[in-house]
């Protein structure tokens, strides 16, 4: 790591102040992406603002027809939350399959969302569930927020404060893990709210998380895994690497989508 100055604010407001004031400052959430990157000297912030002390960024709450999760809530806390498990069990399931147990004790939803790793799990859930990302400045839909590979709509000095998930009638997540890194090679989140269906895909897109309209249309007609039989995702625009070329990944999108629907429908 290169040298940096460490800050540990107690509130999100203080953190935002530091971020605005200090040249070349970076936020540290759970650290499970940023610290390895810094160890490899691929990131070199002059100031590191650790959000770990900001109690106001933590916690899970049911607010009417929404579940609201603080940005610094860990994956383990989401996975184990009685509120999440009751209201959106698929979200708890997703959180319980991020990384490994030790990673889940440190990694946070806000960190994951703000990093927008194309192989991260949460972006698929946010997009399919129609979540709202609340920052210290404004509210954004997932579609507005995720703008590309590792790219988000976050501006200078902007911090993800919490994420609000509207309840849905049915939802399910399935992922095919990269055998080595255990990140999502392909992850598909399906959600049904009233007559609306959304299918969001992570891990596979050249531009990060995306929706799959053909599958949505088919599932809208009938929300069952069988509805996806014969529907194939194109390999165009799909990631290729040594673990999976575009054709295989595209195929897995279909397989994972059917599995996600099966989970959502309890079949």
């Amino acid at each position: 790591m290169y040298a940096f100055t460490y800050h540990r604010p107690a509130t999100a407001r203080q953190a935002a102040g530091l971020l605005a004031k200090k040249e070349d400052a970076k936020l540290l959430a759970g650290g499970h992406t940023l610290l390895p990157t810094m160890k490899q000297r691929l990131a070199s912030p002059t100031h590191l603002v650790d959000l770990g002390g900001c109690a106001d960024l933590r916690g899970i709450e049911r607010k009417g027809r929404n579940v609201v999760i603080g940005a610094m809530t860990t994956h383990a806390e989401v996975a184990d939350s009685a509120v999440v498990r009751e209201a959106i069990p698929s979200l708890a399931y997703l959180a319980s399959h991020i990384g490994d147990p030790h990673v889940r004790h440190r990694g946070t939803i806000g960190g994951s969302v703000a990093n927008n790793d194309p192989a991260a799990d949460y972006p698929a859930a946010l997009m399919a569930l129609g979540a709202t990302i609340v920052t210290n400045k404004r509210k954004l839909t997932a579609e507005e927020f995720f703008t590309g590979l590792y790219e988000t709509a976050l501006e200078e000095g902007e911090i993800v404060v919490r994420i609000s998930f509207p309840l849905v009638s049915k939802a399910g997540y399935a992922k095919f893990r990269n055998p080595a890194s255990r990140y999502a090679l392909v992850g598909v989140f399906v959600a049904k709210r009233g007559s609306e269906v959304s299918v969001a895909v992570t891990g596979a897109g050249e531009g990060g998380v995306f929706r799959w309209p053909e599958a949505e249309a088919a599932l809208k007609a009938r929300f069952a895994a069988k509805s996806l039989d014969g529907i194939k995702h194109t390999a165009k625009g799909i990631n290729a690497d040594m673990h999976a070329d575009a054709e295989y990944r595209a195929h897995l999108i279909g397989v994972m989508a059917r599995e996600a629907v099966a989970r959502a429908t309890g079949k």
Binding site: G31, H32, L48, H102, H105, R106
Partner: peptide, 9 residues
Amino acid sequence: KAVKSCTTL
């Protein structure tokens, strides 16, 4: 709670 001490400041 179990954590990875190589990824914690």
